[in-house]
């Protein structure tokens, strides 16, 4: 191997030497400075990536645990991880947590279903018909600037303090991101594909079904993701309105009794539910968007 390199180097040296007068000739006579390109498979050895990524959160929990064991972090400020785990186990054993999760999840999904249907329907009307755009778009663009949470007092006056205002808040919050993204998706469908569809003899309905809606799908899923994020946020706000069940109710109760461990359990549950829903959308994207050139998952 080293012999080979030596031979090649001499050969280069000779070529360079014959080319008298060129700049760098003398330097090249000593051989060309080279580097070896490492295959990518060689550089990923060592600690697996997931392990490296997991180390951060594990470290945070560890520091938290140490701080509460040593008394640096008093229980009244924030309960330690051990206490949180045991109270979570307790809540699960009594069935309280499952029931609260179910109630909250249902609120979020019902709100999303109502808000999403309204948003998508309006987006289709505005995106597909000029009359629809003229009637709907300006109104929606105006309304979307109102912060949803600011509507809570009105919602309470209109719907009372039962389930309705909570669901209405979530529906309001989720309708806008879906409207905006589905509408933008429809308007940004590649016009050359629409032309191609017309030369293929597609009727208007077929053009919508085979060209426009699939073309708008990537944007629609972006909208869905935003909507889900907002649904969760709206859920947290909504459950502060005199809830008698659900995670917000559990939290409000815990606040009354200074049970910081239960509050942390509820926060973790909110986070986990959010993650689960995000995972669902990701899976949906994998299945529905595998045709995309930009798609990089498998």
């Amino acid at each position: 191997m080293t012999d080979d390199i030596a031979v090649i180097n001499t050969a280069f040296g000779q070529v360079a030497a014959s080319n008298t007068g060129a700049i760098g000739t003398s330097a090249r006579r000593q051989g060309i400075l080279r580097e070896r390109i490492k295959p990518v498979s060689a550089s990923t050895k060592g600690v697996p990536r997931w392990l490296r990524r997991a180390s951060g959160p594990v470290l945070v929990v560890l520091v938290w645990h140490l701080a509460s064991v040593t008394g640096l972090l008093p229980k009244e400020v924030l309960a330690g991880p051990a206490t949180v785990v045991s109270s979570a186990a307790n809540l699960i054993a009594t069935g309280e947590l499952q029931q609260a999760m179910w109630v909250s999840l249902m609120r979020a999904l019902v709100g999303l279903a109502i808000g999403g249907s309204v948003g998508v329907t309006l987006a289709l009307c505005a995106g597909l018909f000029r009359l629809g755009e003229d009637l709907i778009d300006a109104t929606m663009q105006m309304l979307r600037t109102v912060p949803n949470v600011a509507l809570i007092p009105l919602l309470i006056i209109w719907f009372g303090i039962g389930e309705a205002p909570k669901i209405a808040l979530i529906a309001l919050g989720t309708a806008f991101p879906l409207y905006l993204n589905v509408y933008a998706g429809i308007r940004n469908v590649d016009s050359t594909l629409i032309e191609a569809g017309r030369t293929l003899g597609l009727s208007r309905a077929a053009l919508i079904w085979h060209v426009i809606l699939p073309g708008a799908l990537p944007n629609a899923l972006v909208g869905l993701r935003y909507s889900l994020g907002i649904a969760w946020l709206a859920l947290v706000f909504g459950e502060q309105i005199n809830a008698t069940a659900g995670i917000g109710y559990l939290m409000a109760n815990a606040r009354e009794f200074f049970q910081t461990d239960v509050i942390v359990v509820c926060l973790v549950v909110y986070a986990l539910l959010g993650l689960a829903v995000d995972f669902t959308v990701r899976t949906l994207e994998k299945v529905l968007l595998s045709w995309r050139p930009a798609f990089n998952g498998t």
């Binding site: 569809g197 293929l200 085979h210 060209v211 699939p214 073309g215 799908l217 045709w291 050139p293």
Partner: peptide, 17 residues
């Protein structure tokens, strides 16, 4: 440009319409 619908498999593109 071929203007195939990227969301349809090749054979679906051929018989589209």
């Amino acid at each position: 440009a071929p203007r195939l619908m990227p969301w349809k498999k090749v054979w679906h593109n051929v018989v589209l319409g």
